[in-house]
Each structure stands twice: as structure tokens, then as C-alpha cells.
């Protein structure tokens, strides 16, 4: 049975977390839930920086290329002259590329977030928890079921 430690106070919670880690419990055996983002936790657990920016970059590049190519290729598909402008009119097509950079970049980041954060989580949809009001540390079973304190 996993053990849950519940705190109301940020300070005590952080101290306890530090203590646990100092006691030799590996970070990967602790699951920490907080009501809001605490960068200290990340530092304590020694987590790798998020890989999300790669998704963003990929999305942005795909968006830019895709946007520009969409405009350029569809214009070339049936070249129709309007206003005497060139068929591939670079400045406005760059604009489409720019907008698609942001759109696809954002959507890719969002998608990447869902992937990395393992959302949606079906099990969590049914479980009732107070994580958003308290600081919770769950210690996995295999690690010393009898570790103390409180």
C-alpha cells in the first residue's frame, strides 16, 4: 500500500520532501502533487527540463513551411492573375506562413503537453482527491513501506 503524506503548508511540505530525499528515497518513487506550480519541487526531484519546446519548434516550423507552401502551391495549381501581382507573391504568402507558425506551433505545444503529461487520464477522472487544496507526497510501495515520520 502506497503511503500518502498530506500537508496544508507549503513550507512544511518542502522540508519534508527534502527530508525524504535526504533519507535516500529516489525521486522516481515519489509522486508529488501540489495545488500550484512549485519550481522548487522540480529542483529537488532533479527532473529533466520539459521536452515541450521541441514540439513547439516542430509545430512552428511545420506551420511556417506548410502555410507558405499552401499559399504558393495552390496559387501555382491554377495560376490566376489578380491586380497584376506575381503568381507567387512572397510578402503576403509569408504572412500566411507566419500565422500558421503560431497556430500550428500552439496546437503542437498543446498536443505535446497532453502527450507528455499523459492526459487525458481516465483513472484520475474517477478518483476524488484533494491535491488542489493540499500538498501531497505519495511514496511508492516498493520503497520502505515502514518509513516514518509525520
Amino acid at each position: 500500500m502506497a503511503r500518502q503524506l498530506i500537508f496544508d503548508d507549503q513550507q512544511t511540505f518542502l522540508q519534508q520532501l527534502e527530508q525524504l530525499l535526504a533519507d535516500g528515497i529516489a525521486g522516481e518513487h515519489l509522486e508529488v502533487r501540489t495545488p500550484y506550480h512549485l519550481s522548487e519541487v522540480e529542483a529537488l526531484l532533479g527532473q529533466q527540463p520539459s521536452k515541450l519546446p521541441f514540439f513547439a519548434l516542430g509545430g512552428a516550423l511545420a506551420g511556417f513551411g506548410g502555410g507558405f507552401l499552401l499559399a504558393a502551391l495552390t496559387s501555382l495549381d491554377w495560376p490566376i492573375i489578380t491586380g497584376g501581382k506575381p503568381i507567387v507573391a512572397v510578402p503576403p504568402f509569408l504572412l500566411i506562413g507566419y500565422l500558421m507558425t503560431i497556430l500550428i506551433g500552439s496546437l503542437a505545444s498543446f498536443g505535446g503537453f497532453l502527450l507528455l503529461a499523459r492526459l487525458p487520464r481516465i483513472d484520475a477522472l474517477v478518483e476524488e482527491q484533494d491535491f488542489d487544496a493540499h500538498f501531497i507526497i505519495t511514496i511508492a510501495d516498493e520503497v520502505a513501506p515502514c518509513t516514518t515520520p509525520s
Binding site: I80, I81, T82, G83, G84, K85
Partner: peptide, 13 residues
């Protein structure tokens, strides 16, 4: 000037 602003190519040369 009318052609370039038409979003759907309804006005063209």
C-alpha cells in the same frame, strides 16, 4: 485594385 482584394478569385484578370 479590385482583383487583388477579392478573397475568392471572383474578380480576376
Amino acid at each position: 485594385p479590385c482583383e487583388a482584394v477579392c478573397p475568392v478569385y471572383a474578380a480576376y484578370h
